[in-house]
Amino acid sequence: MTKQKSKHHRLDTTPYFMLAPGYLIYFIFIMVPVFYGIYYSFTNYAFYGKPGFVGFSNYRYLLKDSLFIKSIGNTVVYTVFTVIPQMVLGLFIANALNKSFRTKSIWRGMIYMPNVTSMVAVSMIWLWLFDPASGFLNMVLRSIGQSGIDWLYNPDTAMPCIIVVGVWKVVGYNMIIYLAGLQAVPQSLYEVAQIDGAGSVRQFFSITLPLLKPTTFFLLVMNTIQSFQVFEQVSIMTNGGPLNTTTTIVHQIYTRAFLDFKMGYASSMAVILLFVIATATFLNFKFGGDTSDVD
């Protein structure tokens, strides 16, 4: 540090110029709207007319909103049960497809498919898979003599179904990021390990996993952020039901904003969501081991 500073008497502006194009666009088109959202949360904005300032009353009402409180719980459950499986599966598949067999590009393509297909079309397939009367899953169950399950219409199974679809959708994406990360692991390390007689399982735990730390950390942070904002499959598949067992924070935000016209109130939910995610991200940074130190 000190050595660097003494070498450059003036502040080197190059890093700022490198940041500038991306950062300016980010700030104007992403950050400024976020500030607006925070401002709306203190108003009674209803899409039309001037927002009136209401102080903290939106936030006070949030404390009484049992549905919102329920949605936080649902969202946390969803996050916990999607982030871990999708990362474990993604890593496992990426590792397996990184080296071993010949036909790997086909398998990779198949696993990546869910990520490219638009949710509107695929949701119909899932709804149909889960349909209690004529769905595929119940057909299978009945053919082996079991009675069908109401899947999305059963308060106990609806959330697990949403989680399955969530994991299904993003495993391919985790796989891709891990594949890219795996390339940073020098092949020579494996060769040395092989000479030492380490099996592939041990190689994985002693070489691959530690060296993938930056990638794993990135995925942990991103997956957490994205899972907390789950909305698409909820809105298409269950609309938050049955008995509100699948309503999530963003689903509540959407409902309040675009169906009830309470943009101000919905924005206050978004601010709470921001705090929840920021806390989770902070914990990830603290205990996930960010290797941000350059020196």
């Binding site: 709804l127 349909d131 004529s134 999305l152």
Partner: peptide, 18 residues
């Protein structure tokens, strides 16, 4: 039969003859 009105006619059991 279980049906969510908002998922639309695709899953409406009446057109399916159920």
């Amino acid at each position: 039969l279980p049906w969510d009105q908002l998922t639309g006619d695709q899953f409406n059991p009446f057109p399916q003859g159920k």
